[in-house]
Design a protein around this nucleic acid. Sequence first.
DNA 1: GGCTATAAATAATG
DNA 2: CATTATTTATAGCC
Lengths: 143, 143
Amino acid sequence: MSSKRKLSKGRRKIEIKRIEKEDARQVTFSKRRVCLFKKASELCTLCAAETDVIVFSPAGKPYSFGHPSVDTVVDHYLSGGNYASQNSIGGVHPHVGARIRDLNRQYTEALNELDAEKKRGMESEKEGKTLETNTGGKNPLKN
Amino acid sequence: MSSKRKLSKGRRKIEIKRIEKEDARQVTFSKRRVCLFKKASELCTLCAAETDVIVFSPAGKPYSFGHPSVDTVVDHYLSGGNYASQNSIGGVHPHVGARIRDLNRQYTEALNELDAEKKRGMESEKEGKTLETNTGGKNPLKN
DNA sequence: GGCTATAAATAATG
DNA sequence: CATTATTTATAGCC
């Protein structure tokens, strides 16, 4: 039947370089992002692996996938950060993890100092509960 | 020629469920991890997207890909954390980002309080430089 | 968002 | 780790 001829040229090979056309880039981003997440998901299921994918669209909109959760994986990564470098691509430095640990340490030091200062000054302030007032009642960093 | 017959059954469809055989799981993990990173890389190049992938092997070994770097992307994610939730899969909570912002805020408050306390007590201590003594001379979080 | 033809990924095997 | 037969992903269109 001549009424059933093919109307698509099907998939064509493309060069891996920045897509200049704004629209086409957005379309490709959407399609590929979905597949990337699917692949990540399959990897988790098939291999019982912890995985996390974070993507920012060309427009700067964030998308993420995480198993068991982005939280868990990033946490895991940050706390063990350094020794991951040998297997990484794209330049991984323990900056973030180090920064957080450092901040936590300084925060604790500041609190201790504050506490000591108060004791010394004998001022009767009432905000000594600061340490317990964070995320959910437990220490912000297990490190 | 009969000497050139096909000896492989080629790729076959598999069910997406945990691979029980240790060896097979490891092999699949290796192959798929490489492809996942490649896909992530292509997404970056084609769409000028920021991307980061963190994977822990079934054995607990970490692998990561990041463009421009895992650091950059995680940082970006953590600082903008909350509004990503709507597009996430797998249970993403702003715990980490919120935790860090909270910690930073409390840290700053503690420092301010400490400073006020010192001024009030008129003690001539010499550790007022605490705020500058962090990661590298600049504020640990831009938040 | 679908459809189709083709490129790419990959399960099984050597 | 190389091959090969298939399944999947996906570029080009509507």
